[in-house]
Amino acid sequence: MPALHITNPISEQDLLKLRAGDRVLLNGTIYTARDAAHKRMAESLQKGEALPFDIAGQTIYYVGPTPAKPGQVIGSAGPTTSGRMDKYTPALLDLGLKGMIGKGYRSEEVIESMKKNQAVYFAAIGGSGALIAKSIKSMEVMAYGDLGPEAIYKLTIKDFPAVVIIDSEGNDWYKIGKQQFQEQTRNVEKFSSRISE
C-alpha cells in the first residue's frame, strides 16, 4: 500500500482514518520535545502555568538532534525512545495533544489516554537521523533554548517517513506486526519466569 500523506496539525478526519501499520509521509508543522522539555512542561502544569506553546491539536516529535553544520537546517534528527516520556504524556493528551512521533513501546496508561483523547502515535526509523534530516525544511526555537538539543523547536517537515504504531482505537502495531512473523514456538513472555528466582 502506498504511503498516506498526512498534514500536521492533523485533521480529525485524517486522525480517525489512520490505522496501526499504515505507512505515512508527514508534512506541515511539528514541535520537538524530549526528556528535559517534558519535565519542564510538567513542572509548569503543576504550578498552574501555561505551556510555552498551545499544544491543542499539535504533534510532538521526540528528538534531540545533533548540532547543525554550517549550511544545514538541522543536524541528524532521528527519533528517541518514547517510553521515557510516558510519565508526562497523559497530561499533555488531556490538553489536546493529537500526534506523537518517536520509537518504541508506550505504556498502558498512554494508550488508554490516547483512546480517550483520540490521538495517534507514529514511529520514525530509529537510527536513520541523516535521512530524516532531509525531510526537515525549517527549524526555530520555541522555548527552553538553554536546553540546547533538548529545547522545544518548531519544525516544518516535508514527506517525513513514519509508520502508525498506535491508532486512535488503541491498536498497537508492535503487537500485530510481530505476530505475523513469530515462528518461535516457545512462549517468550514466559521465558523469564522459567528462570528460578
Partner: peptide, 27 residues
C-alpha cells in the same frame, strides 16, 4: 515494512558517509 526499513538504513548510511554527518543523532 521490514525491507523498506532496511533499504532506508542503507540509504541513511550512504548519506552519512558522503555528507559527513552522523548516521544517528544519538552519537
Amino acid at each position: 515494512t521490514g525491507k523498506d526499513i532496511l533499504e532506508q538504513l542503507i540509504l541513511n548510511a550512504d548519506i552519512a558517509r558522503s555528507e559527513r554527518v552522523p548516521m544517528c543523532q544519538d552519537t
